[in-house]
Design a protein around this nucleic acid. Structure first.
Length: 579
DNA sequence: GGAGGAATAT
DNA sequence: AATATTCCTC
């Protein structure tokens, strides 16, 4: 490490005798009580600091003015005859801008506060212990960091830490030199430079990440379908999506993931078919109506663009979508879920699941599907966090949760809500008209969504796999920490408002936040950030709420099913397309 | 010289 | 795991 040299240009800590950082710290002690003065001097010297004492505040000021660079830090008593310690504090802060530590026998909060308000970097109560003096250098260090302007708490802390460890015993010169500190800052500055741009427009340090919300994905899928799976390209998709802030790269990345997902499904499908002989039976309901079903290559018909090209040889299908948007959106291909479920052992769930499909009409069917697939709020509560996290969660669990679903009752509920959903959505600024318009309502969207990812396969396995993952994502994950931090910064700047989710918010929601956040369940979020005391976390949590499809707690009371359900859907969907 | 897309990085 | 970036090919 670099040693602090006595001849540093800036003259800091220039002690002829010591070159290790804390050692040689030039301290000016001011106290009208000679006894204390002596004691302090002794103690400070023991710390290897260079000590200068004076019993008069005025005298201290004089010394300081004479040579502004002669001291690194000032320790002053509060009660002095010639001048109020606070006054001195103020002067020093004004003229020399040196860190000042106040001390007194009086620990009254108001006084301490006064000292701090006047700029004291610390307030020590007499009797003062070595321990307290030993670390006063930290104030100098901190100040320097700040001065270096682009002080970064993190690095600063690290450096500080290092210094402390290394310097504690003043044994070696294992300390960071001021120069180093400075360099750290510089590096920091450089880094921040790019960030700054983003900061400018409310974004945090890093480039915002695009969160592929259900809406976005839906658009994506729609575009893919319109173009034709075999002809798609990021650019084309991007153009069709008409999402201004989205970039080709974003789309490319998503497409990559999408393809990966599909291929994985395909793979699984293949395996399955081979092992079990023939693939799944056709899904139950191929509803002529609007539902599309997937499975078997045969059903590709009615879509303008069936994206089955992906599937291959074996003809097992990949997936189809109703391409044309129009109201066609509603029809999603729901097959998969059905199939999966039916296969699953737990009878109760199966029954419920199947039923809807076979008998319901398309629109209803889709609802039903949702119901089946998505655990309702009840489920939420029932899902054990632990298990959810586990990779092998499984069918059993899923089934369990499914069996708990209040399908019938819920279904009705949902339908009703659905009618309101549009209103809700519209009222929610976070969703732009365009977004709302194309799709009749969220449910259909989800249905479509699900189709995209799930329909291709009717494999239970895939469903199962995804589920656990999704749960994982539901739980606050650390990965989001970084993005979130950033985003919060942005939010902070803009004054995030939970009540008013504006387009901007939508934008932020999609660009600023970490992806996982979007699927975080309210419950977890709340738990999570209720534990946090700082603003960042609080907002982080709120953000999450917003992100999860209008999951505003305050709204929950009013628009129950819709919100709950939607959030659930979103989570499910997300998991679904998590490859 | 840009678009796609696999490989990598974060 | 989800996205972003990089890098190579066409």
């Amino acid at each position: 490490m670099t040693l602090l040299s006595n001849n540093m240009d800036n003259g800091c800590f220039s002690s002829p005798r010591h070159d290790a950082f804390p050692a040689g710290l030039r301290v000016l002690v001011v106290d009208d009580d000679p006894t204390w003065l002596r004691i302090l001097e002794k103690m400070l010297k023991k710390c290897l600091y260079e000590v200068t004492t004076c019993c008069l505040a005025i005298e201290a000021l004089k010394k300081l003015r004479e040579r502004k660079d002669a001291f690194d830090i000032v320790i002053s008593d509060v009660n002095m005859p010639d001048m109020d310690g606070f006054k001195l504090l103020e002067q020093v802060g004004l003229e020399m801008d040196l860190p000042v530590i106040m001390m007194s026998v009086d620990g009254e909060t108001s006084r301490v506060m006064k000292g701090v308000q006047h700029g004291a970097c610390d307030y020590l109560l007499k009797p003062i212990r070595m321990k307290e003096l030993r670390n006063i250098w930290q104030h100098v260090f901190r100040k320097r960091m700040h001065e270096a302007r682009d002080f970064e708490s993190h690095e600063g802390f690290e450096a500080l830490h290092l210094m402390m460890n290394g310097s504690d015993q003043s044994d070696d010169g294992n300390l960071f030199a001021v120069e180093e500190i400075t360099s750290i800052k510089k590096r920091k500055d450089a880094d921040n430079k790019h960030d700054d741009k983003e900061f400018g427009d409310h974004s945090p340090s890093k480039k915002a990440r695009v969160v592929w919300s259900v809406d976005l994905h839906q658009k994506f899928v729609k575009a893919v379908n319109q173009i034709g799976f075999d002809k798609v390209g990021p650019k084309k998709i991007l153009d069709l999506m008409t999402v201004p802030w989205l970039t080709r790269e974003n789309v490319a990345s998503h497409l990559q993931k999408y393809r990966l997902y599909l291929s994985r499904l395909q793979k699984e499908n293949d395996q399955k078919s081979s092992s079990s002989g023939i693939k799944h039976s056709d899904s139950p309901s191929k509803d002529p109506g609007s539902f599309s079903l997937l499975n078997t290559a045969n059903n590709k018909q009615q879509n303008d663009v069936a994206i089955d090209s992906f599937s291959h040889s074996d003809g097992s299908l990949l997936f189809q979508m109703d391409a044309p948007s129009h109201e066609g959106d509603l029809k999603g291909i729901v097959s998969e879920p059905t199939t999966e479920k039916s296969r699953t052992p737990p009878i109760s769930s199966q029954m419920s699941l199947n039923q809807p499909f076979s008998s319901l009409e398309s629109s209803e069917a889709s609802h039903a599907v949702f119901d089946c697939t998505i655990p309702t709020q009840y489920s939420w509560g029932e899902f054990p966090k632990g298990p959810l996290k586990e990779e092998q969660k499984t069918i059993v669990q899923l089934e369990d949760s499914f069996s708990h679903l209040p399908l019938h009752g819920t279904r009705q509920h949902i339908q009703v809500d659905q009618s309101q959903s549009n209103a809700s959505i519209n009222s929610n600024p976070s969703i732009t008209k365009e977004e709302v318009a194309p799709s009749l309502d969220i449910k259909p969207l989800y249905a479509g969504y699900k189709n995209d990812y799930v329909s291709p396969m009717s494999s239970i396995g895939s469903a199962v796999d995804t589920f656990p993952n999704q749960s994982k994502s539901l739980i606050v994950n650390d990965q989001s920490s970084e993005p979130i931090f950033t985003s919060t910064l942005g939010l902070k700047t803009h004054g995030f408002d939970l009540d008013c989710i504006s387009d901007l918010d939508f934008y932020q929601r999609n660009l600023l936040l970490g992806g996982e956040a979007a699927s975080a369940p309210l419950e977890d979020d709340l738990n999570f950030f209720l534990l946090q005391t700082d603003w960042y976390n609080m907002n982080f949590g709120q953000q999450n709420i917003n992100m999860s499809e209008c999951y505003d707690p305050r709204l929950v009371g009013e628009a129950p099913s819709y919100f709950y359900d939607s959030s659930d859907y979103s989570s499910v969907d997300q998991s679904l397309f998590i490859a």
